[in-house]
Amino acid sequence: MRGPARLFSPITDHVSLITVMSFAERMLKIDRRIIFLVIGLCTLLPLLYPVGLPIKISSEVRGVYDHIESLPEGATLVLSLDFDPASKPELYPQAIALLRHAFKKNLRVIALTLWVSGTGMAEQIVTQVAKELGKETGKDYTFLGWSPGGQAVIINMGQDLYSAFPSDYSGKPTKGLPVLEGVRNLKDITYLVSLGAGRPGVEEWYVFGKDKYKFEMGGGCTGVMAPGLYPLLRSGQINGLIGGLRGAAEYESLIDQKGKAVAGMDAQSATHVAIIVLVIICNLFYFSMRQQKSVGQG
């Protein structure tokens, strides 16, 4: 008895019927698309017309920077790019800044990813920065690519890096690569930074990596994840944390090479302030509505 079905059924938004409501009530039930528009404009305008506000460096970002700064030339840095394109806006600038710093310090960089959907992007990031600083694959850096298993890959690398990654992303055998000289497993690395957008990410590298194979490590994550990783930071389980776009902007400032993150901070500033203003307005309406109701009841 069904009528003819439509090829693409419409997706309608839930819009409450506005009956007899006070102004405050109507404002509290405002169409959320208006809020979306405000946020959209607050993001777009600063990107088009940047202001360039000064950025204060936090101790957690400085932790990662200082540690890399203290490493001797030729020390091995493992950079695990554990994110996919969804988190690119926040973690891509972090990865670029970290790689620039590491290559400038002439560290040997071993890059990899635990997220299959991030493999292509990770390769692009590493190759792009290496090219920019004239680094040679196999000698100054290597991109190992992705290996299935998530945390199992970390354990496997802890036992034998060459069994976890018999070849690098381009298919070259990892055994014999000059960049991996003296590195048999995770016990032999100097420092590890995981830029994680979820699981597997920073926590997994700590639990299955640092905790078992004892190396120093730092982390980077999306802004929304950062508060969740503070306990790891406070307990010294990681020695630094680059949190979200803000963290990336701080790192860019530290290496004195301002990029996408610093540019994005104006947009983030504007959106934060917009949300604060929205919350204040919503509370003003809320209290005015409550007052009206109490007067009505009285």
Partner: peptide, 19 residues
């Protein structure tokens, strides 16, 4: 998809963040 989060955070904050 990830960017939508920023818009949803704002609308959720507007709707729910009341004293």
């Amino acid at each position: 998809m990830f960017a939508i989060l920023a818009f949803f955070i704002a609308s959720a904050a507007y709707r729910s963040f009341r004293a």
